[in-house]
Design a protein around this nucleic acid. Structure first.
Length: 1016
RNA sequence: GCUCGAGUGGCGGAACUGGUAGACGCGCUGGAUUCAAAAUCCAGUUCCUUUGGAGUGUGGGUUCGAUUCCCACCUCGAGUACCA
């Protein structure tokens, strides 16, 4: 029973205070940001969440708390702060739930968003909710569709190195064909003249243009995930299986929308230089883009005698043109288009069998045994560009169709894979390196390379040889210097329901047409079923109202499709990253129905100053967003070609799982026992549930304790009964030993000392309701702890709702920051929150030193100690926030409050600035105290206290005196004392003499204000 | 394999450009208060053979002085992978 005493209401009643201020902020729109202001702007952004059905756990808000602290700090510093929040609300889970239950994803999503909002609100974030966006909202995805259209209507001009309107390309074509156009385009474009262009049909023109557009429809090999019924982007595949669900992925040819992100490869790489993002993230983008410099080399295939075929050429990319004389064969990917054309009749069977075998192997198999060397000889030969020697052409699956040209010039002496292949198939391995033994392995050290046996390259080191080789190849017209990227164009179609529909219909020729911008958004149609259709079409194939009427400019019933003015609409939807690639700009002007955002808004807010979110988006969202931003920059829509100046990856908060141990029966498998195996298993099934405290096993059971001993020691009735029922004719009781079964316990049943609430455990797990618990000597039952990822199945998920209820949002915010450095992953342990919570209580008490702990703040002048404590806190906290070292400022607050309490400080001159300092971290208590100190306005924009050095000036210093670098004692000396006097004073000290034990010091180092070190 | 990042008490973690290693908090131990518990307060808490000594993953190096800089190695984590 809890008894409340009236009259002690001055206690820190966090629940009441927090509710009060959350309501105040909402009612007063305290954090609403204006698009015009005299103040300097500052844009603090969080990666918006996908609203999952599970709600938030304590790990999720970590980044939000950090960004909120920074946003609040910047407001105190006088900035106009934009700190919005929204939802990335299209996605797979809602759709799969819909497939299972028939519940419309929009309904599930809305419900989840409601939960998220409640959970976010209770943490006291200073979001400007008036700017909320949801990617699944038609008023938002209208603009996602709009950008798609802009991309469709653009091409990439390499000459100007930017995206341009497709009209300028058409103008080129009309004037001079495509010969002089330097564009990023499909590889299979054929040259045509202005006259050719003029003679093309409309449909043919469209077909040609599609090869140049920044978003284009192409039959491409995609990652198809049969289990999910959709294609996946490369970054959605992890270890050969789908990131979501872990389903197998196969390669499949499909007609899909793609984004020509490769056009931006170099700029995406260069842009990394000027943004302040974590190095590991930049590294992984750099890797993903995968720039490599080298040369493309053309090898002529030697025609066979009887061939009437046209001469073939093999183009390869190599980073080592310097090793051109080391080529002893060519290898093509099995999928290479030339394979079927050049294979000789004698080799046909072997080659086809090999191709079939490799096609069957999944990505995963292929990755699993990379060591197996397989391949086949095509029977054809290519001619070496310089020596004119014939080079056998092989195929092998170590050459990837998707990288470079899908063909390599094999230099076994310089590349280990070529070496292994050559060795396996008995192909010669000529050595072209000076003074290197290649009898065991290939030699790939560029730095130490000196070329030999290579005609004009002899004696040259790597770099010079590369240059010379390219020069000679160019002279021959059989090669040139080339930069190759690993980055592929991004597949943009998904066979899903819950995503943005494309603003696209198909004309009678099957050519895609854009719907005019003024008719956007094209809203997602209703469907009966969320599964693919029986004919294998995407879910939108189930829609009956999904045709575009060109006359009426509206979506109409499919029955009216006539390919004259009513056309079928695109059935795919956009991928998850579509909506998240532009949301940060939309926040600047989220309700604008005329434009994606006004020029005034974008010119005021410019770009994101601080972006906080997880590192898992390194090669997905963060790369695609940079791509779209650069595109929008080219179009003159945004003033910056990088959208976020600074980015921080918050670390993951892991869980601290709790384990209980249950005894199990074990036996040695003697021959007698193996006969009675069944009976033994029966016994172990029947063995009563006995749990033991975590440390007892080693002490008690592992050490040969028998079943009889156990029964005698504890006299558990069920155990005694079990024993009495054992048929000793079948088994020998003395041969039983004990094992232990480790089970997760819910972490909420465990206290700070790792003691389990046994009754709670029994209630939680009714099947163990009558289990026995062997406790420690003091009667406690201890669990063991392990750090694991937070997950439902591990019963280590901690819900912020419960924490807020028990300790308050301010405690939670402080504690999450206090756990450790923001960017580091660290385990959650609820026990520790009492430290943060009692700090807040202590701070509350500092302002409540009146009679009966009533509020009391005086106008008394502060003491020097008060001022010193305050100003060193200001200094440290300011530095910490600027450095995102939030954990250390929490300890600074603790020290500050401890000191001021000891000093019995009640001076308003100290306590007012202290409230502001704490306010970014624990805003509710700060507002409450601020109000009590007589302010009628929110603390949110109160100016940050100004640090003044003069309060920290000291006249003396406690010098550490060290001997050979080891500190042995300290000595208080005036700070203005000269080096000589310090040395003299230290040497005169009795402890110095003691340390030296009669030796004369060789040297005395005096660093004034720091340290004294005596050597000797 | 390659590329990053990290190794400090029982635990989370502090330590500015090299200058008193272990701040702050949890936990633990003892005490005060209480009929008792919770809460609160006070003291202690790296280790050891304790008038002293050792100690920041291991081994070297630079330095008057190294958790910090350099080299090699070990362990863990993240990303990536037949990339020509």
């Amino acid at each position: 029973m809890v008894i409340f005493f009236i009259g002690t209401m001055m206690n820190y009643n966090f629940n009441e205070i927090e509710a009060k201020w959350q309501k105040y902020w909402a009612d007063n729109q305290t954090f609403k940001a204006e698009n015009d202001s005299e103040k300097e702007k500052f844009y603090v952004l969080d990666m918006f969440p996908y609203p999952s059905g599970a709600g938030l756990h304590v790990g999720h808000p970590l980044g939000y708390i950090a960004s909120d602290i920074y946003a609040r700090y910047k407001r105190h510093k006088g900035f106009n702060v934009l700190h919005p929040q929204g939802y990335d609300s299209f996605g797979l889970p809602a759709e799969q739930y819909a497939i299972q239950t028939g519940q419309h994803p929009a309904i599930t999503t809305a419900a989840n968003i409601k939960t998220y909002r409640r959970q976010l609100d209770q943490l006291g974030f200073s979001f400007d909710w008036s700017r909320e966006v949801r990617t699944s909202d038609p008023s938002y995805y209208k603009w996602t569709q709009w950008i798609f259209i802009q991309l469709f209507n653009s091409w990439y001009n390499k000459e100007t190195d930017k995206a341009e309107d497709i009209k300028s390309l058409i103008a080129h074509f009309e004037k001079e064909g495509n010969a002089k156009v330097d564009a990023v385009c499909d590889e299979d474009v054929v040259e045509f003249t202005a006259e050719d262009w003029d003679s093309f049909s409309d449909s043919k023109k469209q077909e040609v243009l599609l090869k140049y557009r920044l978003t284009y429809l192409a039959e491409s090999e995609v990652n198809w995930c049969p289990a999910l019924g959709t294609v996946l982007a490369n970054d959605e595949i992890v270890n050969g299986v789908s990131e979501r669900g872990g389903h197998p992925v196969i390669r499949k040819k499909m007609t899909q929308w793609s984004m020509r992100i490769t056009a931006y490869a170099q700029r995406l790489l260069d842009g990394l230089q000027k943004i302040d993002w974590p190095q590991p993230l930049k590294d992984s983008q750099t890797n993903w883009i995968g720039r490599s410099e080298g040369a493309s080399v053309t090898f002529n295939v030697i025609p066979t005698e009887r061939s009437d075929e046209e001469p073939h050429q093999i183009e390869v990319f190599t980073t080592r043109p310097d090793t051109i004389f080391g080529v002893s064969f060519m290898t093509l990917a099995p999928e290479h288009e030339l394979v079927s054309k050049i294979t000789t009749p004698e080799q046909k069977d072997e080659v086809e069998a090999y191709i079939e075998a490799t096609a069957k192997r999944s990505e995963r198999d292929r990755m699993a045994d990379v060591k197996a060397i397989t391949g086949a000889f095509t029977g054809a030969f290519a001619e070496h560009p310089f020596t004119k020697e014939p080079l056998p052409i092989w195929i092998g699956d170590y050459v990837l169709a998707g990288y470079g040209t899908g063909a390599v010039m094999s230099v076994p002496c310089g590349d280990q894979r070529d070496y292994d292949y050559a060795e396996h198939f008995n192909i010669p391995i000529p050595n072209i390196f000076e003074g290197v033994d290649i009898s065991k392995e290939a030699f790939a050290d560029k730095e130490k390379t000196v070329i030999a046996n290579s005609d004009f390259l002899n004696g040259l080191p790597y770099k010079k040889a590369v240059k010379r080789a390219i020069f000679e190849l160019e002279k021959l017209g059989q090669g040139k210097g080339k930069v190759n990227f690993r980055l592929r164009d991004a597949v943009f179609s998904r066979q899903r329901y819950w995503g943005e529909p494309f603003p696209v219909y198909y004309d009678g020729n099957g050519m895609p047409q854009m719907i005019e911008e003024q008719y956007l958004p094209i809203t997602l149609p209703e469907v009966e079923k969320y599964l693919p259709t029986e004919t294998g079409e995407p879910p939108l194939g189930n829609a009956t109202e999904w045709a575009w009427d060109l006359n009426k400019s509206e979506v109409v019933n499919n029955e009216r499709i006539d390919y004259k003015h009513v056309f079928p609409l695109e059935l795919n939807t956009m991928p998850g990253w579509a909506g998240s690639s532009q949301y940060f700009n939309r926040y600047m002007d989220p309700h604008n129905d005329e434009e994606i955002f006004s020029q005034e808004a974008i010119n005021y807010w410019q770009d994101v100053d601080l972006y906080i979110g997880g590192s898992e988006h390194a090669t997905g969202h963060l790369l695609y967003s940079r791509f779209w931003q650069k595109f929008m920059f080219d179009k003159g829509l945004v003033p910056k070609d990088e959208f976020a100046k600074k980015l921080i990856n918050q670390g993951m908060i892991t869980g601290t799982s709790a384990f209980v141990y249950k005894l199990s029966l074990m036996w040695a498998l003697t021959s007698r026992h193996s006969d009675n195996r069944k009976y033994l298993e029966e016994l172990s099934q029947k063995f009563p549930d006995i749990f033991h405290s975590s440390e007892l096993y080693e002490k008690t059971f592992s050490d040969g304790l028998t079943l009889n001993d156990l029964a005698a020691k504890f006299e558990f009735p069920k155990l005694l009964k079990f024993l009495s029922e054992i048929d000793e004719n079948k088994v020998n009781i003395s041969q039983f030993t004990f094992g232990e079964i480790k089970l997760h316990s819910d972490v909420s049943l465990v206290n700070a000392s790792d003691e389990l609430d046994i009754e709670g455990f029994k209630k939680w797990r009714p099947e163990y309701g009558d289990a026995e618990f062997i406790t420690e000597e003091d009667g406690s039952f201890k669990v063991s702890r392990e750090v694991e990822k937070m997950s439902k199945s591990k019963y280590n998920v901690v819900n912020p709702d419960a924490i807020c209820e028990e300790y308050g949002a301010d405690s939670l915010r402080l504690y999450e920051m206090f756990l450790g450095p923001l960017e580091q992953s660290k385990p959650w342990n609820t026990a520790g929150i009492t430290g943060a919570h009692s700090f807040l209580k202590k701070m509350w008490r500092l302002y409540h030193t009146g009679p009966n702990e009533t509020f009391y703040v005086s106008d008394n002048a502060p003491s020097n100690d008060n001022l010193k404590t305050l100003h060193k806190t200001i200094k440290k906290v300011e530095e910490d926030i600027e450095n995102f070292s939030f954990n250390t400022s929490v300890s600074t607050f603790m020290i500050c409050v401890n000191e001021l309490s000891a000093q019995k400080c009640s001076s308003k001159e100290i306590l007012e600035p202290l409230a502001i300092l704490v306010s970014p971290y624990a805003p509710h208590i700060a507002e409450e105290l601020w109000e009590k100190m007589g302010h009628s306005e929110s603390i949110a924009t109160a100016p940050f206290p100004k640090f003044e050095e003069k309060y920290l000036v000291e006249s003396s210093k406690e010098y550490p005196i060290s001997f050979n670098g080891k500190m042995r004692f300290t000595m208080e000396l005036p700070l203005d004392m000269s080096k000589e006097n310090i040395e003299a004073a230290v040497l005169a000290h009795e402890k110095t003499q003691q340390q030296l034990q009669g030796r004369t010091p060789k040297k005395v180092i005096v660093v004034p204000g720091k340290i004294v070190n005596i050597v000797g």
